[in-house]
Amino acid sequence: MTFDGETQNGPSLIDPFGRQINYLRVSVTDRCDFRCFYCMAEDMHFLPKKDILSLEELDRLCSAFVHQGVRRLRLTGGEPLVRKGILTLISSLSRHIETGALEELTLTTNGSQLKRMADDLANLGVKRINVSLDSLKEDRFNAITRWGKFSLVMDGIEAALAAGIKLKLNMVALNGVNDDEFDDMIRYCHERDMDLTIIETMPLGEIDHDRLDLYLPLDQVKRQLSQSWTLSPSRHKTGGPATYMSVAETGGRIGFITPLTHNFCESCNRVRVTCTGTLYMCLGQEDAVDLRAPLRASESDDLLLQEICGAIARKPLGHDFIIDREHNRPSIGRHMSVTGG
């Protein structure tokens, strides 16, 4: 079965609760050139290359989802732009944009490679990118990322904006770390016509710090922001889990992703595939389906499509995210870099 040249999406993927699954997030690598302390341990052990899907396999897998009704495709990692040959993959996948089968091809990045790649990404049809940035203070940024280079990321943001790419910054709210920077981040983003999304830290993977000390509920953040800004609900949607509020003083928007205080499960329209081809129907559940085996078992996509449809048929209603206060353990053992950020 080949999908090249087709212009119509195939049958929609509908889960047991009537939700249409039209958003796919695919991790192209578990590797990252940062070591953000809330995300992973500094001494990480990454997967052997033989376990990682090739670029051709990633293309074929993504295309199978597109032709089953997926309209939004986000490439993630680790850090997706450190994957060798990533621009070749994006170039190939952009054919689905040209045919109209895919509405959006985008990615989430730490920004480290944007300075050199922004123009190429724009030329390949990437119109919107999420950049993870947790601080505007260089010393604090260095402490959070451990391996990051602040000036390179800031230059990358400017390069992407100059290339005409719409940016949204993702900021993880970290209690006692960056909770004094929300106002500055709003000003920085909205002055450059960028949206800002604030995210609760998620209990994924063992790290070197106590998650209880880092956790900051976004209800508290909203109350803090309402003292400085006039906030009102916004109907803006990007296809992801964020709910948005408009800021009267700037004309910009703030998104909030709240997996713990107010989960977003009832409207979930997305699934995730890891760089090894494991399909997770829910970020906060361990149930998963191996797509690498059927992908490699046959040149036909029949087995692959059978596994995809079977997986969607058992997508759960919601996740089980909690922070285990008794044992200080994450809800899910795998790191975010494995599942895809």
Rank of each mutant, 00 (worst) to 15 (best):
T2M: 02
F3C: 07
G5P: 06
N9H: 00
D15M: 06
Q20T: 06
R25A: 01
R25K: 01
M40V: 08
A41G: 15
D43F: 12
L47Q: 09
K49L: 13
L53I: 02
L55K: 00
L55M: 11
E57Q: 09
Q68E: 02
R74A: 03
R74S: 08
L75V: 01
L75E: 06
T76V: 05
E79G: 01
L87S: 07
T88V: 09
T88M: 14
I90Y: 10
S92P: 06
R95V: 08
E104I: 04
L107S: 12
G111I: 07
S112P: 06
Q113K: 15
D119N: 14
D119C: 12
R128N: 06
I129W: 04
V131Q: 04
V131S: 09
E138T: 05
E138Y: 05
I144N: 07
G148P: 00
K149G: 09
K149M: 09
S151D: 13
M154L: 15
L167V: 12
V172W: 05
D179S: 13
D180F: 09
F182I: 05
D183P: 08
Y188P: 03
Y188C: 01
C189M: 04
H190R: 02
H190Y: 11
T197L: 11
I198M: 11
I199N: 06
M202P: 01
I207Y: 06
R211L: 15
L216R: 09
D219V: 12
Q220F: 14
Q220R: 14
Q224K: 15
L225C: 10
Q227A: 14
W229K: 10
T230N: 11
S234V: 01
S234F: 07
R235K: 15
H236G: 07
H236T: 11
H236F: 11
K237N: 10
G239N: 04
P241F: 04
A242G: 05
Y244N: 03
M245W: 15
I254Y: 03
I257G: 05
C265M: 05
C275T: 01
Y280R: 02
M281P: 02
M281V: 00
D287E: 15
V289Q: 06
D290T: 02
L291H: 00
P294G: 05
R296D: 00
E307S: 11
C309D: 06
A311C: 11
A313L: 08
G318M: 11
G318D: 09
H319N: 14
H319T: 12
D320Y: 13
D320N: 15
D324G: 06
R334V: 15
M336P: 03
T339D: 10
G341L: 09
